[in-house]
Amino acid sequence: MKISVICLIIALLVPCFAKADTSSIGTIKNTKGEVTVVRNAAPAPAHIGDRLYPEDILQTGTNSSTGIIFEDNTMLSLGPDTEIIISNYVFAPEKGLFSMIIQMIKGTASYLSGIIGQQSPEAVEFQTPDATIGIRGTQFLVKVEI
């Protein structure tokens, strides 16, 4: 009985901790056409001003595009029929912690380094299905054909 009560309390508390731990990592600045954010496996249409969180998946449809700015001022814009996963993102300059891992599944994208890229370039990894891009500044373009 006691154990089940403790379990219940833990079960109720865990989501609170999880929520408190995740702060937004970027913002959608523009959208054209069909732009979708998939969070916890649930797709939803993206709007200007929407916040992004670690592990978000961003998708654009035909004739669609979107532009985002991360907390460290990294800018990423996507062309049509594109899909990326923000696998990891940490920006805590007060603690000197930086990490950014982006996986590109398909489509076209433009990337412009921000503070993480300037202060800790080795912390940035941009992955395509067949290679990893290491970045020593500043802007590049990627296309992944399936």
């Binding site: 398909k106 412009l112 380094s113 395509t128 299905p129 067949d130 290679a131 990893t132 891009i133 290491g134 970045i135 020593r136 500044g137 500043t138 802007q139 590049f140 373009l141 990627v142 296309k143 992944v144 054909e145 399936i146």
Partner: peptide, 23 residues
């Protein structure tokens, strides 16, 4: 299954960075 292209371009201030592409 896939094929990728990576292009290094000048940033808005005209600076050119450096990329490594590894597999």
């Amino acid at each position: 299954g896939t094929k990728s292209t990576v292009v290094l371009v000048p940033d808005p201030d005209g600076r050119i960075g450096k990329l490594t592409v590894t597999n």
